[in-house]
Design a protein around this nucleic acid. Structure first.
Length: 437
RNA sequence: GCCGGGGUGGUGUAGCCUGGUCAGCACAGGGGACUGUGGAUCCCCUAGCCCGGGUUCAAAUCCCGGCCCCGGCCCCA
């Protein structure tokens, strides 16, 4: 009698065989694309010194971390993402490596937050980091890769929305706002309130009518670059802003060359947390009715490596949220039917050791041919064994009893048609392959 | 951290408001009817009131606290 039932830890999930086949399918598609773009797989430790994450994001981030003291008194945290670890690794060992450094990872992350739709405490991300190039080509490369990653999973109904931290900073300056983060958070919430409420909120924030007018101009800067950029050049007057806009114009030209232009949009309202991003930021949105917002995001972080004690090194990257992507793929019927069951069940009739041994030999023969084969381990009677095969959708059953064995044969049963034939034991593997084909 | 809704066998649920029959049903699982042939039927078995406290003669049921789940807020690297 169990004294105590141990449950899963809050915000975690058990992944069952049927979940794992789907995930593996998605991971493999994404991995293929990462690889053909020349990214190499890496993995850093599951936990790091808490300091690493504090250095990047400040003290308040600790309450969103799975942070604890180990037995040696070290303050450590489970990784909330891989970007910090990658930057640390780069500073530790790769500062003199040939540039660019192109790394990817597919692994789990941990954040101590309240679970809700599309949000767990342990979750998986597939992401890349491209370190060493300050050029807009590098931004284009990762954005194109992100788009192609989604496409490889069959997703088509999505957009990659591109914003820019520099322009947001310029915007805040134009309005004379010091708390640019606060302003952007407010702008982020615009869709959750009515126009009147939004105007009220902006007034409460301290903006005058002219500034509010400008905020609305900014929000309208969303869509295809041909429409948005001309308006943006009107709204932004500073030299820095104009230069940044020129880069974005070029970025979209490059995306045309990559062949992914159709999926990319401008959205200058994107803030992406404001942690360490320095210019181009982006996030992917897929239309869905599951209440899932962004399915991935990224951007340029040109001073993070410096923060970690490295030489100033530009970098950019993104991460795809697997737990958000998979339900969307599933709801759109984009995941193929992946059968889990074995191809063959070998069943014996009778209790003689000789028959059981022959059944094992047949099973092994099939396995050597890389056919997924199992034999009846429960010792069920033939009738029950057939019911079992039917229930778990094993398409072929090989039956071996005294009568078959006496002739050196076994019976193969096609579980779908019900047809059976007697076949010499040595020829089973060949026959099974033909029947499965 | 805050707010709302919920927690009954492995799964889905009835019962809760109006405390009191062995907590009912279905599916799944195991066995049998049928000792070499399944996807049909019948029978049997396994297995449950999230945890702790309180009220009461009596708690799955009412009250309090906790934990967990679903969703929302904050936040979202």
């Amino acid at each position: 009698m169990a004294k105590q039932q141990i449950e899963r830890v809050k915000g975690t999930r058990d992944l069952l065989p049927e979940d794992m086949v789907k995930r593996r399918y998605v991971f493999e598609r994404i991995r293929e694309v990462f690889e053909v773009y020349g990214f190499k797989e890496i993995l850093t430790p599951t936990f790091e010194y808490t300091k690493l994450f504090q250095l990047r994001s400040g003290e308040e981030v600790v309450k969103q971390l799975y942070a604890f003291k180990d037995k040696g008194g070290r303050d450590v945290s489970l990784r909330p993402d891989l970007t910090s670890s990658v930057a640390r690794l780069f500073v530790n060992k790769f500062q003199n490596a040939p540039k660019p450094v192109k790394w990817y990872y597919i692994t789990n992350m941990f954040r101590y937050e309240e679970p809700q739709s599309g949000r767990l405490r342990e979750f998986w991300q597939a992401g890349v980091e491209l370190i060493g190039s300050p050029n807009i080509e590098a931004d284009a490369e990762v954005i194109a890769l992100m788009i192609e990653s989604y496409l490889s999973t069959g997703l088509k109904d999505f957009t990659l929305n591109i914003g820019d931290r520099i322009l947001l900073d310029e915007f805040a300056k134009m309005l004379g706002v010091k708390d640019d983060i606060g302003l952007m958070r407010l702008i982020d919430k615009k869709d959750k309130m009515s126009r009147e409420e939004f105007i009220e909120a902006l007034k409460d924030f301290g903006l005058n009518d002219d500034a509010i007018e400008k905020v609305f101009s900014l929000i309208e800067l969303k869509g295809k670059p041909d429409e948005v950029l001309p308006k943006a050049y009107e709204l932004f007057t500073s030299k820095e802003a104009k230069e940044e806009l020129k880069k974005i114009e070029e970025l979209f030209e490059l995306l045309k060359a990559y062949g992914v232009y159709d999926y990319a949009l401008i959205d200058f309202g994107i803030a992406r947390g404001f942690d360490y991003y320095t210019s181009i930021v982006f996030e992917a949105i897929a239309e869905n009715d599951l209440g899932i917002g962004s399915i991935g995001g990224g951007g340029r972080y040109d001073n993070l490596i410096e923060v970690f004690g490295g030489k100033p090194t530009p970098a950019t990257g993104f991460a795809i949220g697997i737990e958000r992507l998979i339900p969307i793929l599933e709801s759109k019927g984009l995941l193929p039917n992946l059968r889990l069951s074995s191809d063959v069940l070998v069943v014996y009739i009778g209790k003689e050791l000789e028959i059981k041994k022959k059944v094992i030999e047949i099973t092994q023969m099939l396995r050597k041919e890389r056919i997924k084969a199992e034999y009846e381990l429960q010792g069920r009677k033939l009738r029950k064994a057939l019911e079992y095969a039917d229930k778990v959708e094993i398409p072929l059953v090989i039956i071996l009893g005294k009568r078959d064995l006496a002739e050196g044969k076994a019976t193969i049963r096609d579980m779908i048609s019900g047809e059976q034939k007697s076949i010499e034991i040595e020829k089973i593997a060949k026959e099974v392959k033909e029947m499965l084909a």
